[in-house]
Simulated assay, not measured.
Amino acid sequence: MKTLAISTLTICGIDELPGNSAREVTHVLSVLDPDRAELDAFGAYGEHHRVTLRFHDIIDPRPGQIMPAPEHVGEILRFGEGLQETAAARVKGHLLVHCHMGISRSTAAMLTLMAQADPTEGEDALFARLREIRPQSWPNSVMIGFADAQLGRQGRLTAALGRHYAHQIEAQPKFRTWMNDLGRRREIEMAV
């Protein structure tokens, strides 16, 4: 099991950002809605490298909203390449990935980064590690599908995502109602 060439991994939502300011975060991947104002919370952080992506947390097209796209996942993978390239210069590091609530886009991004960093790690093991980092994770299925293709996982990440959803529904039954109310029935149906 490899890590992301970084010693600490955190996933959170916007409201949790202030509580992470003293944790020596060195790298931030922000995934925000396109119309969201810039966040003030990072003013309290020390020196860090930050990349911001802007798209909505949806799995089907909606008028006026931006779907996750292959290019967004490509940017996440380039961010991961940067982490690998700068690893030798770091004694330690702390990667924080966040989205609005720290449940869907951010967990999909972190899973993508973990799968990229360790191409031989089994998909179910990657999702188990993700649950250790963020127990309430419900990765965006569109993003995972793009990551699966771009990482050459041949559908294995998507299949493991279905098993992850089944695990999450069993562990936290509220997800079934919550995701259904958000128009994400297709993800519930993926649960094996």
Rank of each mutant, 00 (worst) to 15 (best):
M1E: 14
M1R: 15
A5P: 05
A5L: 05
I6R: 08
I6M: 12
I6F: 08
S7W: 05
T8L: 05
L9H: 12
L9P: 14
L9W: 08
T10E: 13
T10Q: 11
I11W: 10
D15A: 00
D15M: 01
D15F: 00
L17I: 15
G19T: 10
R23T: 13
E24K: 05
T26H: 01
V31I: 15
R36Y: 05
R36W: 03
A37Q: 04
A37R: 00
E38R: 01
D40L: 14
A41C: 13
F42E: 13
G43Q: 12
G43K: 12
G46L: 03
H48L: 08
V51A: 09
L53P: 08
F55N: 01
F55M: 00
H56T: 01
H56C: 05
H56S: 04
D57I: 03
I58Y: 04
I58K: 00
P61A: 00
P63H: 00
P63K: 00
Q65I: 01
M67W: 02
A69P: 08
P70A: 04
P70F: 08
G74M: 03
E75S: 12
E75K: 09
L77K: 04
F79L: 11
G82K: 07
Q84H: 10
E85I: 02
R90D: 12
V91A: 14
K92N: 10
V97C: 06
H98P: 15
H98T: 11
H100W: 15
M101V: 06
S106I: 05
M110S: 11
M110L: 15
L111F: 11
T112M: 06
L113H: 07
M114R: 07
A115I: 11
Q116A: 13
P119F: 04
D124G: 01
F127R: 03
A128N: 04
R129D: 13
R131H: 13
R131Y: 07
E132N: 03
I133Y: 05
P135W: 02
P135D: 00
Q136A: 10
Q136P: 12
S137Q: 07
W138V: 06
N140F: 11
N140M: 08
V142N: 09
V142W: 13
I144T: 04
G145C: 12
A147H: 09
A147V: 13
A147T: 07
A149D: 07
Q150V: 11
Q150K: 15
G152R: 10
R153K: 13
G155C: 10
R156H: 09
A159I: 03
G162E: 06
R163Q: 05
R163E: 01
H164T: 04
H164I: 02
H164G: 09
Y165E: 00
H167F: 14
H167T: 08
Q168W: 06
A171L: 12
Q172G: 00
P173Q: 00
R176A: 13
W178D: 02
M179N: 10
M179K: 11
M179A: 13
N180H: 10
D181P: 04
D181N: 14
R184C: 11
R184S: 06
R186I: 04
E189Y: 03
E189G: 11
V192P: 15
